[in-house]
């Protein structure tokens, strides 16, 4: 990877020496690939964990296709910004009012040999399988080269690097609506050569503890998981919602948890992988135990998805009390992780 940095001087338009790495999630994947490319080896779970990204939020005020927003991680850009603070990385961000200016700036950076991150809308990226194309405006990817109007992209959720024509890329960068990217691009201005893991890891874990265990409102963190369970019971009691809406709603929760690039169980396995990797740097016993407990929490989330899916397809009688109790089980297991991590 390091030889790629050496040839930064040329105004090449050929794809440069860049190693595509597949990730579970776009933003953590982009940052892991970018830092590794510039000489700071970084895995996706480590990027995710160092930026204290794990969360849970049930936000009925924000609607996605008429359903409440349910998030398992902190909002977009949290990882990029969190890493800046945690490891002393410096990133340059730029958005554009004018679309052609946004495209020329991208071209200029690529032609200088820079690796550029973009915020895009999934729907307009032609290489996505048709059934995965939904309007989500905060999808991150890397551009590592271009040949005329064909861009070489490293989209972290794909197995291989892909290409995208200029017109489509422009549309994806400038799609309007919630979380509109406004052509946002970003690239590093300074990448540290190493991370003081024994220092950074406990800080990141303490910050994540506050999000999950000490959130000031009941819809965030571990309490938010219990709140969702109560909400399911409420929906099931509502005569207008207890049939069609309840099924769609459960399907929506499953999609938010599993489909939207979470690495399984709403990022719980990514975080468990972070704790596992972190245990090699510091607090070995404690972090390994916390990782195993987080895996149990993730397994329980997967069970929730499985049971909800069966109920939606009438392979099992609809029983929201059972779903509520599984969610409380997830919350209990996550709380036991944070009670343990509090000691760090």
């Amino acid at each position: 990877m390091s030889e790629a940095i050496a040839d930064r001087d040329t105004s090449e338009t050929q794809p440069r020496s860049f190693n595509h790495m597949q990730s579970a999630h776009c933003e953590s994947g982009v940052m892991a690939a970018m830092l590794s490319h510039y000489g700071l080896p970084m895995t996706e779970p480590m990027a995710f964990g160092l930026a204290n990204t794990l969360s849970f939020a049930y936000i009925p005020l924000v609607k996605l296709s008429g359903m409440p927003l349910i998030a398992y991680r902190m909002p977009p850009h949290w990882i990029i910004k969190g890493l800046q603070k945690r490891i002393g990385l410096k990133m340059k961000f730029q958005t554009f009012r004018d679309q052609s200016e946004g495209m020329s700036k991208l071209d200029a950076l690529i032609d200088q040999g820079k690796l550029v991150g973009l915020q895009t809308s999934v729907y307009w990226l032609p290489y996505f399988p048709d059934e995965m194309r939904f309007h989500f405006n905060a999808h991150n990817l890397l551009v590592f080269g271009r040949e005329g109007d064909i861009y070489h992209l490293s989209d972290p959720v794909f197995e291989q690097a892909v290409t995208c024509p200029r017109r489509d890329l422009q549309k994806a960068r400038f799609a309007k609506g919630a979380l509109a990217a406004k052509g946002m691009l970003y690239y590093p201005e300074y990448v540290p050569s190493e991370v003081d893991f024994p220092e950074a890891i406990p800080k990141a874990i303490r910050a994540n503890f506050k999000i999950m265990a000490k959130a000031p409102i009941p819809v965030i963190g571990v309490r938010g998981i219990r709140y969702l369970g109560k909400n399911l019971q409420k929906v099931a009691r509502d005569p207008r919602k207890k049939d069609r809406y309840l099924r769609l709603y459960l399907g929506h929760i499953v999609r938010m948890q599993e489909e939207i690039g979470t690495g399984g169980a709403g990022f719980r396995f990514v975080y468990a992988a972070f704790l596992n990797e972190a245990s090699r740097h510091t607090h070995a016993g404690l972090l390994q135990e916390a990782s195993a407990k987080m895996t149990e929490a993730g397994d329980e989330w997967r069970r929730f998805a499985l049971v909800a899916s069966k109920m939606c397809r009438d392979r099992q009688g609809m029983d929201v009390a059972e779903l509520d109790s599984i969610l409380n089980g997830c919350a209990d297991r996550e709380m036991s992780v944070w009670n343990l991590l509090q000691k760090i």
């Binding site: 059934e131 995965m132 399907g251 499953v254 999609r255 489909e259 899916s309």
Partner: peptide, 11 residues
Amino acid sequence: WEVESNATRDA
């Protein structure tokens, strides 16, 4: 995962 793809297809 069948559970996930069923949810996608329902949507």
